[in-house]
Design a protein around this nucleic acid. Sequence first.
DNA 1: CAGTGGTCTAGACCACGAA
DNA 2: TCGTGGTCTAGACCACTGG
Lengths: 243, 243
Amino acid sequence: MIDLPDTASPLYEKVKDYILINIGTGKWGKDRKLPSENELVVSLGVSRMTVHRALRELTAAGFLIRLQGVGTFIAPPRPQSTLIEINNIAAEIVERGNRHRSEVLVLETIVPTKELALSFEFAKRTSVYHSVVVNFENDLPVQLEERFVNPGLIPDYDKQDFTRTATYDYLMQKTPVTEVEHIISAIPADKETAQHLGIDVGSCCLLLHRRTWTGAVVATISKLTYAGSRYSLGSRYSPSRAS
Amino acid sequence: MIDLPDTASPLYEKVKDYILINIGTGKWGKDRKLPSENELVVSLGVSRMTVHRALRELTAAGFLIRLQGVGTFIAPPRPQSTLIEINNIAAEIVERGNRHRSEVLVLETIVPTKELALSFEFAKRTSVYHSVVVNFENDLPVQLEERFVNPGLIPDYDKQDFTRTATYDYLMQKTPVTEVEHIISAIPADKETAQHLGIDVGSCCLLLHRRTWTGAVVATISKLTYAGSRYSLGSRYSPSRAS
DNA sequence: CAGTGGTCTAGACCACGAA
DNA sequence: TCGTGGTCTAGACCACTGG
């Protein structure tokens, strides 16, 4: 019998979170098949209607695929959506026909500052992964990428070779993103940023601050700095009636 | 007792159809209030869970608004979506509990430059409306707003008093937006911008360039400049996996 | 207080797919 | 045939709103 968190949210939301986290941590392994509704009823101690609602909503949201008479499976990786893709810089660069290269400046495990722990919505100061990477487009540095990563959801982040795989790709592969927050601002480059991006101190940069969630859990916190003169963020989309 | 169609679809789908049709034909008239769940249970002869599911799904799809303890209502025409609303600066300011004020610097009709005509995808150099407005939050200038407006879609734009109505509101009221393009960059303030925003020349600004379409026709082109130190653009949303 | 929507359960029947 | 997901019911308790 598995315990669900004792929060105020409805049971079916807890079940959804439980499932999302277990998708993220790879619990349902190689064939990506979930336990049946009846098994979840027993192991979670909730009624089948509740399990069913959780599974139905995750299916509607695209995380699962269900086949009557067969079972429930984790959906294949994510098609990108408007706001997400502004962040897969490696893919963007390649798509423009240019050459992409990364340089890893930092890749470590740290104990977060109080403020950072707060951003992660951690109760305790659990340690997190920390990386700093510079992304180049044709040998011109365009983006400075600092990330803090929740090791509970994305294990072994510190053991990857991010000159070969983009951080973005590793993260996407490891855990599904259910929510994204972006804050965009314009700031002058400080000395360190200027040095890494090869621009003058004080020149304009775009700062994209971003948090991603898997269920109710913060998965990553990223600070992406773009050389203002070399980069803009674009998006085009059709507003739909559905929220 | 009302009869639902005798098709193969699930009951809750029939209930949804029944409700949608009655929204369309205006059956729930001027206050746009639907019967309660229990009333529908009686009049349709189905269980409350089934009625509830139909109502919940229509709510998720944006057709209904439900208030616990109050009732179920037909949703107002066009709910705003994430990317749109980052532009309704007047509403944002008021929502934060601050005072909003606009100053109209320019409101005129011009013949577009070749480049501008190209952005509008005009074949000929049809004249367009042009406005420049400064938006204040508590008497502090936060946004410089330059717009070019297609007079074919938004008539009499040049005759409005934009110290009373926000440009955004007038545009939204006049034409539905079917597509939006955003390009965000960071630039140093030029002399004129610096003066209008009350900042130093060369200090960092966020530049949001935006085009909106109504069908295949470009409706507006806007250039929104934010004082970098006073403003950031934020968004939070749940990616739907639907492409 | 009564009425609303929000959630949850236990149990039932069905359609489908694989062995 | 058996296990899967899909639907539906009757009844219950809760939180919230309004008078």
